[in-house]
């Protein structure tokens, strides 16, 4: 059927009993997915880069977060009014997120500026770093709650989603650093990351399984969403992106790393695939979001 225009698709959806959400996954909605991915991975990278002392990691984390923020901004219908989004801290997770992300970006920027201009540590720098880490942590945590507080979409409306998002953001952060290392531009020590990364990958896989299993039992709508992921129109990106590229291959390569030294190229691949996997899972969960049946 010639329903290519978004509004035509929307109308066609309206006669479905379980209507898919599209605003946060299709068209400009892809920007939001990318934004969540980049801010998550960026904040994650920042958090890992600090203890590892990787300045490149910091820079990369910062710029990824900036990229994400730009994505967030241009996802908005009215970007010029974005500042208004900070006004409902009391109830809205997006408000909270904007504040956290802003805190992260501003303090991270200042810290980096200080780092490169002054080239030595100061008390101010430490405070900024501490604040930026708070901001990054905040950024990582709030995302899941944004999705989880969406009452319209049962698949998301569970405390497991924040846990999943935190896990993915951390894993993404680690993956960024590993990717950098693989590309040979990692300045700090990255080896400690590898077991963390593996552990994160394995635990994320377990978390995804738990999540899907729990959602299967959380009512008809969530079950249908899970079915979409496992057997439906979202199955391809889910199995190919989230499961194969994002979990199995990195875990496989990661396990292999215990036996032998990993070549740099393979390492970069692990990082890249992990990131793709992270992006996929965010995308898949968004795409699988269905509204509750109406009228009942």
């Amino acid at each position: 059927m010639a329903r290519t225009e978004p509004f035509q698709i929307r109308i066609a959806d309206l006669r479905e009993r379980y209507r898919p959400q599209r605003e946060w996954a299709e068209g400009r909605g892809l920007l939001l997915i990318l934004a969540h991915f980049f801010t998550g991975a960026g904040a994650g990278a920042w958090l890992f880069a600090v203890p590892l002392g990787s300045d490149t990691g910091l820079v990369a984390g910062f710029f990824l977060a900036v990229l994400g923020a730009v994505g967030h901004l241009f996802f908005l219908g009215r970007p010029e009014r974005f500042w208004r989004m900070a006004t409902r801290m009391g109830s809205s997770w997006i408000s909270r997120g904007l504040v956290g992300l802003s805190l992260f970006l501003v303090t991270a920027f200042l810290y980096l500026a200080l780092l490169f201009l002054a080239a030595h540590t100061t008390t101010l720098g430490s405070i900024l770093l501490a604040l930026s880490m708070l901001g990054a942590l905040w950024t990582i945590i709030y995302k899941g709650f944004v999705w989880a507080s969406s009452k319209g979409i049962p698949l998301w409306n569970t405390p497991l989603v924040p846990a999943l998002y935190i896990a993915y953001a951390l894993r993404g952060g680690a993956a960024v650093l590993i990717l950098l290392a693989g590309l040979g531009i990692q300045l700090g020590a990255w080896e400690p990351l590898e077991p963390i990364k593996l552990w994160l990958a394995v635990s994320t896989a377990v978390l995804v399984l738990i999540y899907l299993e729990v959602m299967r039992g959380s009512g008809m709508t969530a079950l249908r969403s899970v079915n979409l992921l496992l057997f439906g129109k979202v199955a391809l990106p889910f199995y190919l992106g989230a499961v194969l590229l994002g979990l199995i291959v990195p875990i496989g390569i990661g396990s292999f790393a215990y036996l032998d030294h990993i070549p740099a190229g393979l390492l970069a691949l692990v990082g890249l695939l992990s990131l793709l996997g992270d992006l996929s899972i965010i995308y898949c969960i968004a795409r699988a979001g269905l509204y509750r049946p109406l009228p009942t």
Partner: peptide
């Protein structure tokens, strides 16, 4: 005049009753 078009409300509405004019 206050709406930024983040569409969060569309995800929150259990009755799918909000529309975004792209």
């Amino acid at each position: 005049e206050l709406c930024v078009g983040c569409r969060y409300c569309m995800m929150a509405c259990p009755y799918d009753q909000r529309f975004f004019l792209s």
